[in-house]
Amino acid sequence: MSAKRLQLLGGVLFAAIIAVPAFVESRFILHMVTLIFFYIAMTSAWNIPVFGGKMSLGHAAFFGLGGYTGAILYVKFGVSPWIGAAAGVAVSLLGGVVMTLPLLRLRGPFFTLASIAFAEVLRMIAIDWRSLTNGSVGLNIPFKPGWANLTFQSGKPFYFLSLILAVAVVFVAYRLRHSALGFHLRASASNDEAAQALGVDTRRAHFIALLWSSGLTGLIGVFYVFFIYVVEPSTMFSLTLFSLQPALNGIIGGIGTIWGPVIGAIVMTPFGEYLRFYLGTIQQGLNYVVYGVVLILTVNFIPGGIVSLVRPKRSNRSDGSGSSSDTKEAR
């Protein structure tokens, strides 16, 4: 497909997305699409450090930090959620620093494993620090509709807010990937030693990538809390919902790419909800068994994710016959 036709297709699709709430009255569909937008944003934010090969399974930590900050400021101190969003970003950035500094020494799976612990510790703190978080009961967002309170009668404002978030995060991820930082991350992911020998401060690159990722995830967390009207530890710091799910979306869509997380979130969010709804009632946890199978199949048969099927890896012979004398002895 030519670039022009692809652009046209994208334009039409985007127009359709914007028009959806005008025609669709079903709250269920609006909710589902909003959820997809949230997951696109979340997965794209999670994906930023993955450019450099750092896969976190602890992003619920930043999501929860952001969400709790926004909710506590609003419920306990009457601070506007819009200011709360800025505070949420600040707190998740702080969380990003605390998690990243000791963890950056760890490579590959060790980084991933340690990141899980970080979110779990925060979940415990959220349960135990009752005076601030109201323990495992959590805090409810009072229903006072209005833009100032980020609370709405209809599902439409959040449809657009989450869409804006998704577009913004994908845009940031795109810009970062094509910046010097993106080059440094990709270089580090394929050969860290060589990247360092070429003058790339790879630890700094990973650190900055994780800060972008944690800050954006915190921001998404704040909006999500006002979308569901409640914060409680087992949701906000949920390993499965906000640590594993973005990773799963990313892996199935295609990690380390721009469109992989988008496609992954679009495919996996309805699939996940469906599984949770139908299989979850038969036997709790059965949906995760199916998840596991899907994950194993993906990693085994399409390691590049769905995006690698849509857009096959650039041809090895991209320079055509012009260099036949150079490539003929390829080994």
């Binding site: 010097a180 080059f183 440094h184 990709r186 270089a187 992911a189 394929s190 050969n191 030693e193 060589a194 990247a195 020998a197 070429l198 003058g199 790339v200 401060d201």
Partner: peptide, 21 residues
């Protein structure tokens, strides 16, 4: 390096890495 392992990106991008640093 003795064992050459270029970055998984185009030849041009490989050479851009040190310049961008």
């Amino acid at each position: 390096f003795q064992v050459v392992r270029p970055f998984a990106m185009t030849v041009l991008e490989n050479v851009m890495v040190p310049l961008l640093a």
